[in-house]
Design a protein around this nucleic acid. Structure first.
Length: 155
DNA sequence: GCCAACGTTGGC
DNA sequence: GCCAACGTTGGC
């Protein structure tokens, strides 16, 4: 069992959007960063737990929990000329972009804001989210970090 | 809206 | 392979 944090801009796709989907599940399409892709392609397994993070919004932070709901498979938007994620350089026989499905689990009782998380940077240790200049949209979370952050929910 | 940080592109 | 230019992310 692995743990992850995945960012989404709520204006584009929020945790409420995920919750209201059929099966409360959605393909995590549009990832166009190799490091983030590699996490999905090489390290995610069905049942892995995911912090759903709202970025680029009024109060950026962790808003809920989701889980990995599929094995990795090619992101169909890369072959769709009408998609903003279309990648003409991706070969259908050797797809460049890979995704997994994500399923809603629950909202946190309260938002764990980035500002609050930063106050716990020392206890969290090396955590990509609070590293300077972090722009990674998918990042691993250690079990200790996961438990610590969930502990904050009740603080 | 600003801008720092970072990734990608493409000329050489 | 280097690196300047450019585009994007995302906090503030």
């Amino acid at each position: 069992m692995n743990y992850w944090l995945m960012k989404s801009e709520p204006d584009a796709f929020s945790i409420e959007d995920l919750k209201s989907r059929p099966d409360q599940t959605e393909p995590w399409d549009g990832v166009r960063n190799y490091q983030a892709r590699n996490f999905m392609r090489d390290a995610m397994t069905v049942g892995d737990q995911v912090f759903f993070y709202h970025s680029n919004c009024k109060v950026p932070g962790i808003v809920g929990v989701a889980e990995v709901a599929s094995k990795p498979y090619p992101d169909p938007t890369q072959f769709d000329p009408d998609s903003k994620y279309h990648d003409p350089k991706s070969d259908p026989d050797k797809p460049r972009w890979i995704l997994v499905d994500i399923r809603y689990r629950r909202h946190l009782k309260r938002v764990l804001s980035l500002a609050e998380i930063k106050q716990h940077a020392e206890a969290l240790g090396d955590f990509a989210l609070v590293r300077k200049g972090n722009r990674l949209s998918i990042m691993p979370v250690e079990k200790e970090q996961w438990d610590y952050l969930l502990g904050l929910e009740r603080a």
